[in-house]
């Protein structure tokens, strides 16, 4: 049987990404359906992540599926020494698909190799978080009308932020220009710059983060600069305010520029910006629902054509 699991979208072709975006578009038009009636979706969160879990469970519920699983590894057998394999094999007997988040890197890849049902990676340690990338791509497409030839500014923690790394890799098909704005300690790692060079992705590094720099952006992708990421706390104190986005900094922004953030934010986007038309992070989070509906359906072998001709639409 063909393995329909989703472990990473780094390997997806342009065509496949566009296909999934079209699918997500259908769910944005009509998110409530009975397309998955009679199916059981398992959400196994070996590491707690309330946002991601709620988003996946809402996606399944709004398509009529039933959801089983656990939200907290403390209540599961993992702590009793059961292997991941045993848990996956057990749950595969009950569910048609498994959405899993794990604190170990490569856990989803391994699960996809042993499970008789498809696996969706909802985050594996510092490694991959493809559903976040999918919703980011969908949001960029939705706000810009295209994924091609965009100037995407990545701000904040570019060293540990896996969302920016996945986004960078997924965008390679679309001729982007990336702009990196980060404190030195959290700069984009060399191997991602190598990746850019190998794939013909242009990138620019900026020292400043001000209205003038931002004026070139189509997408301003903000991330958290976390204190615990710094080895030198003096350095943290020096730079922490330099990567905060404040309303006056949007003075020269393109009218179509949108601000994204994977959420939760701490203070990197000031609250006054929430009401500005450039702010888009809450809509972005909402898109997570449609993107995840698409990913679940695709993993279950449901095609775009079936979704377009779906007769189970409720609203």
């Amino acid at each position: 049987m063909e393995n329909r699991s989703l472990v990473t979208i780094a390997d997806h072709s342009r065509q496949k990404i566009e296909y999934l975006l079209q699918m997500a578009r259908q769910f944005e038009l009509h998110p409530n359906r009975l397309l998955l009636q009679g199916r059981v979706v398992a959400t196994l969160f070996f590491e707690p992540s309330t946002r991601t879990r709620l988003s996946f469970e809402t996606a399944a519920n709004r398509l009529g599926a039933r959801v089983i699983g656990f939200a907290d590894p403390k209540v599961t057998s993992g702590t009793k020494g059961e292997t991941l394999k045993d848990t996956i094999m057990m749950v595969s007997n009950y569910a048609d698909i498994i959405v899993m988040r794990h604190y170990l890197e490569g856990a989803a890849r391994y699960a996809s190799e042993i499970a008789p049902v498809p696996i969706i990676n909802a985050g594996d340690g510092a490694n991959q978080h493809p559903s976040q990338t999918m919703l980011d791509l969908y949001t960029i497409y939705q706000t810009q009308g295209t994924l091609d030839n965009l100037h995407i500014y990545l701000v904040g923690d570019l060293k540990y932020g896996r969302t920016v790394h996945s986004l960078l890799m997924a965008m390679r098909h679309f001729n982007p220009t990336f702009h990196f704005i980060a404190p030195e300690e959290l700069a984009m790692p060399a191997h991602y710059k190598d990746y850019c060079r190998q794939h013909g992705i242009r990138y620019v590094e900026h020292q400043e983060f001000d209205a003038e720099v931002i004026s070139g952006a189509d997408i301003l992708y903000m991330t958290r600069v976390q204190r615990e990421r710094f080895t030198d706390l003096m350095e943290y104190e020096r730079v922490k305010d330099r990567y905060l986005l404040k309303l006056p900094m949007l003075a020269q922004a393109k009218p179509t520029m949108k601000i994204l953030h994977p959420l939760p934010r701490v203070n990197e986007i000031e609250y006054a910006i929430d009401d500005d038309p450039h702010a888009y992070y809450f809509q972005q989070a909402r898109n997570g629902l449609f993107a995840r509906q698409a990913l679940i359906c695709d993993a279950l072998g449901i095609t775009l054509e079936q979704i377009e001709n779906d007769t189970t639409i409720l609203s």
Binding site: L84, R109, Y110
Partner: peptide, 25 residues
């Protein structure tokens, strides 16, 4: 994951760097 489960490691030989990349992480 390969250091935390009873499983075999898998590495890919990357070209042209000649480095080995873990299939899982």
């Amino acid at each position: 994951i390969c250091n935390n489960e009873p499983m075999r490691t898998v590495f890919h030989l990357e070209r042209p760097s000649g480095r080995l990349r873990c299939h899982y992480c």
